[in-house]
Design a protein around this nucleic acid. Sequence first.
RNA 1: CGGAAUGUGGUGUAACGGCUAACAUCCCUGGUUUGGGACCAGGUGACUCCGGGUUCGAAUCCCGGCAUUCCGACCA
Length: 426
Amino acid sequence: MRQSKLYTKTRKDAPKDEVSTNAILLTRAGYIHKEMAGVYTMLPLGLRVLTKIENIIRRHMDEIGNELLMTALSPKETWEKTGRLETIDVLMKTMPANKVSEDKSSASYVLGSTHEEMITPIAQEYSRSYKDLPSAFYQIQTKFRNEARAKSGLLRGREFRMKDLYSFHKNADDLNVYYDEAKKVYMNIFNEVGIGADTFITLAGGGDFTKDFSHEFQTLCDAGEDTIFLDRKNNIAYNKEVTDEATAKKLGVDFTKMEQVRACEIGNIFPLNTKFSKAFDYTYVDETGTKQDVYMGCYGIGPTRLMGVVVEKFADEKGLIWPESIAPFSVHLIVLSRDKDGEAYKVAEKIYEAFNKSHVEVLFDDREASAGEKFADSDLIGIPMRVVVSDKSLEKGGVELKERKVDASEIITVDQLLQMYTRPCC
RNA sequence: CGGAAUGUGGUGUAACGGCUAACAUCCCUGGUUUGGGACCAGGUGACUCCGGGUUCGAAUCCCGGCAUUCCGACCA
């Protein structure tokens, strides 16, 4: 893509109504636009990153479930069945928008904050026999939660993207096997996104969902809201909320000897067991024709929050730094020249064309801007690799290649560059 | 939901209760410039968040909303 056709712009000043690193940098670089507290539009660059994150998640989820897309609107009645219409205080409900609608329908709907109430009846319709189990459905969708206090930019919003997966099983053992498999798949996702090394499976309370422990995926991050007790040797962590004496005794661990760190929860998994299947009277028929309880699990990852955490972890004083796997573009091609018909532009255009042909994702800064502005923008936008073409670089024998995250750069020939990026793959 | 702070051109800031609300940036015009947010000249753009009140006079003081941020509670 040509930067002259990228309709968003960078800005020097931080917005005064943002304090968090992720919101400041993503706004300054033109990735997001704030609509309200905790509600952000994904601008073209931001959408590219979000889509990449979601596609990574999608690819891994396809190994353990079927993707579907449920509705954001749901009927009140289904929430009444589980009693959660009253107990979930972040639930958002619609109202008839104006007087006119009073004559027609005064129906109000619940905006989905989670989808157990919707998926359970769906599974009930299709998975009624032991032959149909286990089954698992997932979706990636916009969720709504009326957080009492939205904060920290993308880390805690009122409208955000969420991948939610629900699994259905013949018994607790089968659920446990799947549950452990889901843990592994989750870690594969976080590894691919580039934060695996700092992400710990963390024992947490089950909340309203379960009397058992649930598991959170906590990424070390100062901007996070959670404190976790870290047992690096055994590669496990404990959410502060469960670090009481009873738990210590039950698990045979000593919390006082563990490191305490700030972290951000980027995913979680809950054994729901029969909580929701019972609410909907969802049973299956086993080999002998007997009705049996269905066991359920639910598994969430927040792509928007993940995006915010990556920013928080990798950014420096100059701007964003994206891991290659989720960067909006792979290469930032920059041309510096006063002469639009000169050699530098010709070479840059040639590289741009070759990259496009080989499907290398390139952002080409073809604008008539000063060198300083182009470099500053490039650092702010944070594409992992930068290629500069200028009269100076051509004199030295080619183009300058520089990684965003390191200071050093090198001059390579145009042929070497094209070989690096356009060699036939696999 | 409790507490605190802040609301002024698109953005960031300034202005003692008193002149036509100032500066920078962005944007537009013209010219110069091109390896780290260049320079010169000119220009567009604000009922100072909303509603009341005090005052001869309010961006400024008072009251009430609303919004945003931060601290806390909450986080199914």
